[in-house]
């Protein structure tokens, strides 16, 4: 397994639209394993392949407190259900910023698991928010896109400054 580099906003590669996975083969499973390791290492609860510069429709998540319940979403398709709710979101590609984002409170998910087996799931609460957040990544979208232009610019400036300093 290997830890992968996480791209950070405003890296233009985060805007790439991911392609569907044709076959869940050993290479995809390796990607899944590496992404899980990367996510756990970064204390994240979800990571999309886009964030590690692989532009395939692959997402890993783990919402459990014990960090022992990994979820794998390959070629996820979601249907938005219910009313909208606002909650705080943060992102491994926008480190240390948390802002309120409005999402649907419920979703229905269809995806493949690590073995390429299809499954369905209805989710609400944090799980539903996280799935919507990760599926946005696969479309080249970030949670900061939901914020006002002013707020987005401020985050962008601060991150660019941090990148310059660490470069």
């Amino acid at each position: 397994m290997a830890r992968l580099e996480i791209l950070e906003f405003p890296d233009p590669r985060l805007r790439t639209k991911a392609q569907p996975v044709a076959v869940v083969d050993a290479a995809i499973q390796q990607l899944v394993d590496d992404m899980l390791e990367t996510m756990y290492d970064a204390d994240g609860i979800g990571l999309a392949a886009t964030q590690v510069n692989v532009h395939k429709r692959v997402v890993v998540m783990d919402l459990s407190s014990a960090r022992e319940e990994p979820r794998v979403l390959i070629n996820p398709e979601i249907e938005l259900l219910g009313a909208t709710v606002e909650s705080q979101e943060g992102c491994l590609s926008v480190p240390e910023f948390y802002e309120p984002v409005t999402r649907h409170e419920r979703i229905r998910l269809e995806a493949l698991d690590r073995d390429g087996q299809p499954y369905e799931l209805e989710a609400e609460g944090l799980l539903a928010v996280c799935i919507q957040h990760e599926c946005d990544h696969l479309l080249g979208k970030l949670f900061v896109d939901y914020l006002s232009g002013l707020k987005r610019q401020r985050i962008r400036k601060k991150l660019e400054k941090r990148h310059r300093q660490s470069a």
Binding site: D62, L63, S64, S65, A66, E68, E69, R71, L121, E122, A123, E124, G125, L126, L127, A128
Partner: peptide, 11 residues
């Protein structure tokens, strides 16, 4: 519904 069954979050 609350994202706990599929996750099988033990706690």
């Amino acid at each position: 519904r609350h994202g706990g069954a599929d996750a099988d979050d033990g706690f």
